[in-house]
């Protein structure tokens, strides 16, 4: 446990010791700021039925753009950098289990992801403070929204982690995870367009867009929770196997 904590601490601090964290944060906050600005413009047109969280997260192009770009960029270095620099060799010859290294890196990335989102909670506060209406923000739906963001983020990060483990190049890792995440994201539009019933059915299970709409309305469905959790576990397991494979791969 102590080892895991030590490894995790180093992963989190590694983010803030490199310029990439700050670039990602600025970029992310600009996109989320645009999203917030859009929401304020809609609200300024008078009382509307628009759910605040839905506009801010579920339907916002900026929100998805941020997720799809931030995840690959923040996970690309996890293993690729260590492989390129050779530090993976000193890391893996220290008395630590491969699984612990993978978990530490994963939770390090997750911690960074969570830190990214913390400033956005201010948006709700700002709205609640300045809004003439009594309760523009529904705290229940806000909690559900952040839960959804956490779930989707956790899952996407595990995909990013996996792609970082399969290559030595950070750029390649980022490209692959970006493509995979885009594939997963756009597969989420299948239920809107597909005519075949079973495709609609399957599409609904994997559609991040639909899941996010639900979460932002304050609906916490267990199906997406189970989907993201299992996919995350699968990716983590696969990552451990990839890391172990260095031993016998030729």
């Amino acid at each position: 446990m102590r080892t895991l904590l030590t490894l995790w601490r180093r992963e989190v601090s590694a983010y803030f010791l490199s310029p990439i964290a700050y670039v990602v944060m600025v970029f992310f906050l600009i996109l989320m700021g645009l999203s917030f600005w859009m929401l304020v413009t809609i609200l300024a047109q008078g009382p509307s039925s628009a759910g605040v969280m839905r506009v801010l997260f579920g339907e916002s192009l900026f929100f998805w753009l941020a997720i799809l770009l931030v995840v690959p960029v923040s996970t690309m270095r996890l293993f690729a950098e260590e492989k390129k620099a050779g530090t993976i060799e000193s890391l893996m010859t220290a008395p630590v289990e491969d699984a612990k290294v993978v978990l530490a890196k994963y939770f390090g990335a997750l911690a960074f992801f969570i830190i990214l989102w913390i400033p956005t909670t201010l948006y709700a506060g700002v709205l609640a403070y300045f809004s003439p209406h009594t309760a523009p923000v529904d705290w229940g739906s806000m909690t559900a929204t952040y839960l959804g963001v956490g779930c989707i983020g956790a899952c996407y990060l595990s995909i990013g982690l996996f792609t970082s483990a399969i290559t030595r190049s950070q750029a390649v890792a980022a490209m692959i995870s970006f493509s995979v995440l885009c594939g997963l994201f756009f597969a989420g539009f299948i239920p809107y367009y597909a005519r075949i019933p079973w495709m609609q059915e399957v599409g609904r299970y994997i559609s991040s867009v639909m899941h996010m709409m639900e979460f932002s309305r304050g609906v916490v469905d267990t199906r997406p929770l189970v989907f993201y959790l299992t996919l995350t576990l699968l990716m983590l397991f696969a990552t451990v196997k990839v890391v172990e494979s260095r031993k016998w791969r030729s």
Binding site: T3, T6, L17, T93, A94
Partner: peptide
């Protein structure tokens, strides 16, 4: 691995860390 001190070729290190920080981190793991 607990009983081995291994210095790989070219001594790969985390360049963004300070010497003390790095050695403490390595000692802990």
């Amino acid at each position: 691995r607990r009983r081995i001190g291994y210095l790989p070729e070219t001594a790969p290190l985390y360049l963004e860390m300070r010497v003390d920080e790095y050695l403490r981190y390595r000692a802990r793991i």
